[in-house]
Every structure is written in structure tokens, then in C-alpha cells.
Design a protein around this nucleic acid. Sequence first.
DNA 1: GTAATGTATTACCGTAGGGTAATATATCTG
DNA 2: CAGATATATTACCCTACGGTAATACATTAC
Lengths: 124, 124
Amino acid sequence: MSNSSALFRILADPTRRLILDLLAERGPLSVGQLASEFPDLVASGISKHLMSLRAGGVVSATRRGRQQIYQLEPDALAAGLTPWLAKYEQYWSAALGRLRDLAQEDGAADRLTSRKNVRRKRLK
Amino acid sequence: MSNSSALFRILADPTRRLILDLLAERGPLSVGQLASEFPDLVASGISKHLMSLRAGGVVSATRRGRQQIYQLEPDALAAGLTPWLAKYEQYWSAALGRLRDLAQEDGAADRLTSRKNVRRKRLK
DNA sequence: GTAATGTATTACCGTAGGGTAATATATCTG
DNA sequence: CAGATATATTACCCTACGGTAATACATTAC
């Protein structure tokens, strides 16, 4: 484990990244709730993506009745990426700092609300 | 361009990540110099990886005689990843901060020297 | 009980991508 | 000039992976 390739491969898929975004901004969600955000995909496809995400440790699931509630595991995400990020930290620390300043300048609450990406047709 | 999926896909391959590491720690290198670090891979394979990296904008090449000298393009790397990083910045800013403090505590010069994966050998 | 719902699993298809070998092209050397 | 060197390109194999449909399984509803 602690394999960078696996994590980058997980993040390489736009559907999985959007799933992470949804969990980050809305908190824990069921498979059906997540699937409803992807009108072009079949539910079992979302389930498969969730399996990948769970295998990678970046989400976890708890059963509630007949539905599975998935939630983000930010620590695993950070732990998986930070070693690689740290190697190149000098390169984007400046850019990240600028973004951070900009964000806390105007509101800071909606840094995670990139909702315009959520309902579109073709992912690319 | 500016496509997160493309960049994550590029980073998902361990050979390409190691190429980036080598360019980061040693500066510009020729294809042959890079290929000599991958005894299990054929040179044209490295060339193909370099094409991917160049298409993704994270490296650039300049011709010198009959060899191509590749160099890292850290700005493109940062520009491609920062938007996504910023969304989850709260999650690893702490971890990154700890690493940064640790690094500038002791020397700060060898943050990029994760040499354990790199087989240093005589280049001709 | 039976039926409906929510999710996971399986089987299968098509494409993308990493790997090699062979070939091509350009440049240097003798 | 011929031949060696450095890199790129092409053709091809094979595997991984995203997608679907069909099926299975558990849980709730009637």
C-alpha cells in the first residue's frame, strides 16, 4: 500500500473525482444519491467506482438499512498524496498560497462549491 | 489542456513519475541519460513516455546536436494540479505544513533527494 | 408470504495504454 | 562518403479498465 500509482490512477477518472467532490461538499451520501448525479451512467457503474475508491481507502462505507452510506476519508487522501506533493512542494506552494489568500478574502465558505460541473453531460 | 484527468493519468505511471523526479533533482537530461536509469525498459519506451509528458506540458525539450534535452516545467505541473489541490487544500495543508517545517528545520536542501529509488551509475 | 427497492457482482464488450521490436530520420565521426 | 549514435515513429501484442446488461442478494414495504 501507500502506492502512489494506485491513488493517481483513482484520481485520473473524472467520475471518481466528482464523486469525491460530492462527498466533500455534501457529506456522506448513499449510492443512489450519488448515482442520481450521473444521469449518463448506470448505477452499477457508480457502485464499481465506489468499490475502487473504497479499495484505495479514500472513502469508507457504513450500512444503513438496505443502503450503503459512503463518506470521504480525507486523512487517507492526504496521507496518500502528501509524500509526492512534498517532493515538489516548492513548485506549487506559491500558487496554493495565492489561492488560499484569494479564497479567505471573499467568503472562504464556497471553496468546495464548484457546482457548475455537477450536472453536465460529457465528462472529459 | 488544463485537463485534470490528463495530468493525473500522466502521474499514474511510476516510470513517468520517476522521470519527473530525475529531472527535478538533476536538472535537464537527455533521453539516453534518462533511459540509462531504467534498465528494464527499452529506450523507445522512455521516448514514448517523454512524448506523453511533453504533450501534457510538464516537460519541454530542446535539441542539442543529435540529442534532445528534456527539462521539467514546474509551472505547468503546478498550474495543472493546483486547482484540484486547492479544493481539498484544507485536508493536507496541515500535513504539508508539518513536512515543510520538518524540512526547513534540517537543511532544506535535500527535500527532493529521495534517492533510494534511483540507481546512480556512470553515464557515458 | 410476495413484491419492490438498494446495492453488489458477474459476464462481456470496446478502447486506451504500456511494452517491445523493427524501422525511420537526423546528426556526428572517421 | 560510410558507418555509428541518438531519438522518434510505426506496428503489433497484451492487459487494464470504463462501460453496460443481467443476475444475485439483502432489506424494506405491502
